[in-house]
């Protein structure tokens, strides 16, 4: 099993709801708390598992804004785990989730250097490295109704731009989305084999106008008046 997220860049509206839902759930979860520094001051900062950046793709007029959420990719070839000297970082063999044992971490930052995706953040208060857990305490919780056994970010997304599933199962919702929409992984040249995938924006054909009925004389006059008369 290889659990992960598939993020739809076509529908993501960049509202940061996934990040705030993540923060809300995980600040009282297994690697809690996600410390804030100066939260209400001039220079707010703190630990987040999920960060959304915004990019402009292409040049005007053929440009588009892309909202880009990034969290741990739960890589197959997770070098953050192999470089960890203490054994605090580990990848679960049963579902591929990469976790940090808070009792073993010595806060040397080395795993964050090895991560190309910026998924790991040091909590200065606890002195330990923290990262996305894929809500491991939630997705297996049998006290929750089955539809709620998903990461908090997935449940919170108002645009349904986040999918959660087993990327090893070819019929899972995530694998199908990757297959049908041309999902891709980030920085493939580094060979980290990330589990999380991104779905590119859909290409939509432009709406044809040639087959529309031609306007009547009255409509043409009205359009001409609208153009020349200032309101």
């Amino acid at each position: 099993m290889r659990l992960g997220l598939v993020i739809d860049l076509d529908t993501c509206v960049g509202c940061h709801a996934c990040a705030t839902a993540c923060k809300q759930w995980n600040t009282s979860s297994i690697t809690a708390p996600l410390t804030d520094y100066d939260p209400y001051g001039k220079e707010p900062s703190g630990v987040w598992f999920n960060r959304i950046r915004h990019y402009e793709i292409g040049d005007y007029p053929n440009n588009k804004t892309i909202n880009f959420p990034m969290s741990c990719m739960h890589c197959e070839n997770a070098e953050c785990v192999t470089v960890c000297p203490t054994g605090a970082s580990y990848k679960r063999p049963e579902d591929g989730i990469v976790l940090v044992d808070q009792d073993k971490c010595m806060g040397c930052n080395y795993c964050s250097w090895a991560c190309p995706y910026g998924a790991r953040e040091l909590d200065r208060e606890s002195g330990t490295m923290k990262k996305c857990t894929l809500c491991v305490d939630r997705i297996y919780d049998e006290a929750l109704p089955p539809e709620d056994r998903q990461p908090a970010c997935v449940l919170a997304c108002p645009a349904h731009a986040r999918l959660f599933g087993d990327l090893d199962d070819p019929e899972s919702v995530t694998s199908r989305a990757v297959r049908e929409r041309g999902g891709y992984a980030l920085m493939p040249e580094l060979n980290y084999s990330p589990t999380n995938h991104y779905l590119p924006p859909r290409t939509r054909p432009s709406i044809p106008t040639s087959d529309l009925p031609r306007g009547s004389l009255a409509r043409k006059v009205r359009e001409w008046v609208n153009r020349v008369v200032e309101r």
Partner: peptide
Amino acid sequence: HLANPKNA
């Protein structure tokens, strides 16, 4: 430079 040297 360790944030949590007790685990060193």
